[in-house]
Simulated assay, not measured.
Amino acid sequence: MAETAAKPRHGLVAFGCVGIVAAMLGASYAAVPLYNLFCRVTGYGGTTQVASAAPSGALERTVQIRFDGNVAPGLGWRFEPETRTMTVRIGETKLALYRAKNVSDRPLTGTASYNVSPNQTGAYFSKLQCFCFTEQTLQPGEEIDMPVAFFVDPSIAENRELDDIREITLSYTFFPVKEPKSASRTVADRPKS
């Protein structure tokens, strides 16, 4: 009698274990998108914000923006800011340009990761337009300007912990893309400069 009662319990334990494994597997797949969403919403780790409109006014307070550009190993590009620093008023929309050149003998596609430092300013650094929103494909020897339109949100003035911030660094690193998405910008569909 004890043997027949144990069989349903073993099945229940096995079903519970499979359920736990499935839940852990699902959580591991959801972790990266959820972490990225958390970073975009909170500015955690220096993640910048994406804005659909600029603020209506600017403050007198200024901050110096430093620009940094890097290329990860495996991507045959040169990538750097055209201007190293820029002084902006809080709430003022500005345009910065980065220059990228494919120094290889074949088309290469890259995607940019980005952040700002100090990290706590990420929640206030907003981009209206950026080359980093899409993959970029450059033909051999091709050299282009890559714009980023941005502002520092005036609400930073409400955070007294950031009153001493006088400089923000915007940093990009381009990484190679193994299989470009079809939506990548190519030479044919880029605006003429």
Rank of each mutant, 00 (worst) to 15 (best):
N36R: 10
E3N: 13
K181D: 15
R190Q: 08
N119K: 13
R190W: 14
V71C: 09
A23K: 03
F125H: 09
R78T: 15
T83G: 04
F79N: 08
T93F: 04
G45A: 06
G76I: 01
V116W: 04
Q49Y: 06
R190I: 07
T93D: 04
Q120H: 10
G19V: 07
S193L: 14
R185G: 09
I20C: 15
N70L: 15
Y124I: 13
V63N: 00
L25E: 09
Q136P: 01
E161I: 00
I144H: 11
S117W: 11
E80Q: 14
T134P: 03
R40N: 07
D153M: 02
R166C: 03
A31L: 15
A58D: 00
E143K: 14
P180D: 07
F133G: 05
C132T: 01
Q120T: 10
T85N: 05
M24W: 13
N119S: 12
A112P: 01
Y172G: 05
A31R: 15
S184I: 00
D105N: 12
P118N: 06
L12R: 00
L170C: 09
P73Y: 12
A14C: 06
M24Y: 07
C132V: 02
V63C: 09
G76M: 10
Q136T: 11
S28L: 11
M1T: 09
K7F: 14
D145F: 10
G19W: 08
F15Y: 04
G91V: 01
E92I: 03
K94G: 06
Y124A: 02
F151G: 10
T83S: 14
P33S: 08
V18H: 03
I168G: 14
S113Q: 04
S56L: 11
F151D: 10
I65E: 00
E80L: 03
N36V: 09
E3K: 08
S155V: 13
V187I: 08
E142C: 02
S193K: 07
G19T: 15
L12Q: 01
P33F: 06
T93K: 02
N102Y: 10
I168D: 02
E92N: 05
G57T: 14
Y172I: 04
F151H: 11
D153V: 00
K178I: 10
L108K: 05
R185D: 12
K181I: 04
E135A: 04
D68T: 06
E161M: 03
V103E: 13
C132I: 05
L108V: 14
R190G: 12
T111F: 14
F133N: 02
F175Y: 15
P147Q: 07
